[in-house]
Each structure stands twice: as structure tokens, then as C-alpha cells.
Amino acid sequence: MIYEVRFHGRGGQGAVTAANLLAVAAGHEGKYSRAFPFFGVERRGAPVQAFCRISDKPFRSYQNVYTPNTVVVLDSTLIKDVDVLSGLEKGGHVVVNCHTCPDLKSASVHYVDATKSALKHLKKPIVNTAMLGAFAKVTDIVKLESLKQVVKDNFGESNVKALEECYAEVKQ
């Protein structure tokens, strides 16, 4: 089975990097993974999608992710413009960066104030690493330790703190 994740964000929030880090973490666990982006326009603030597939077996597909098992939303203001739940598997998780529970018609909505964590630990509103913490809590597709290691290798300790905080604080 191929596990599919779709990230929704805006240019500059790190959705593409989030998908990439997830693929690298899965790779560290000896899994097969592939992440790639779909840009709107290449500028800050524009809606961006990024995809990640993870599997125990090799796979070929380079198509976009249409039927995700989990959706991660880095910016809750996207919800009114983009159908973030499109194709989400029945009972699939949606993890949103939001300080209150977002208005989404899905059985499994999780939310965390990742912007708060990012501002606190990174002093800037780049929420991708924080949201990976929430993702790790909600799903068990990649180990928390693998994600922490990859985030540490690429972005250092402060990002790991943001990740850990959102792992602890994500709510349903």
C-alpha cells in the first residue's frame, strides 16, 4: 500500500520543504518515498500543494496526489479558497494550522497553533517543521524520532523545538 499525504500551504510557509522532509525521514527508515510540489505561481503567498508518497515497496507513480490518506493545511485561510478535503479517504486525517477548530466537514480534524510555535522558536511564521510534529502525532506512518533527526540535520534545534511543541499540543 502506498500512503499518500497532501500538503496545502502558501508560498513561503514551507509546504514543499515539509513534504521533502517527510520523504527524507521515511527514506531514513528504509522506506520508499517520493515528494514533489505543485506550484501555483512561484511567489510568496500564492497557494501551493506538495505531495508525499510513502511505501514499504518500490513504486513508480509520478502523478499528483488525488486521494490522500492525510491532508496537512499550513494556512487555515486557504480553506475558504481551496477544497483541501478533495479526495481525502474516508476517515482520513486532516491536520490544520489554526488556533481554533477549523470548520471542516471531516470526521478526523486535528488542529494546532503552529504559527504561535514557529514565532516563538524561530521568530518567523514558517510553520512547516512545526506542522510535521502535529502530523507525527496524528499518524504513525513515520516515527517522531526520524522526523526530529531530519529537521535537526537540515534546520537545527529551534525547529525541533517547534516540532516537539506541536506534537504535544495538537488537538482533535
Binding site: V16, A19, N20, A23, V24, G27, Y32, S33, R34, A35, F36, P37, F38, F39, Y62
Partner: peptide
């Protein structure tokens, strides 16, 4: 190399 599909894919 297919643009984005290959150039931007992160994989082992």
C-alpha cells in the same frame, strides 16, 4: 527529465 515530476521529486 520531466520538469517538476523528476527535477523536483525527492526520493531515495
Amino acid at each position: 527529465m520531466d520538469g517538476f515530476y523528476l527535477t523536483h521529486s525527492v526520493e531515495p
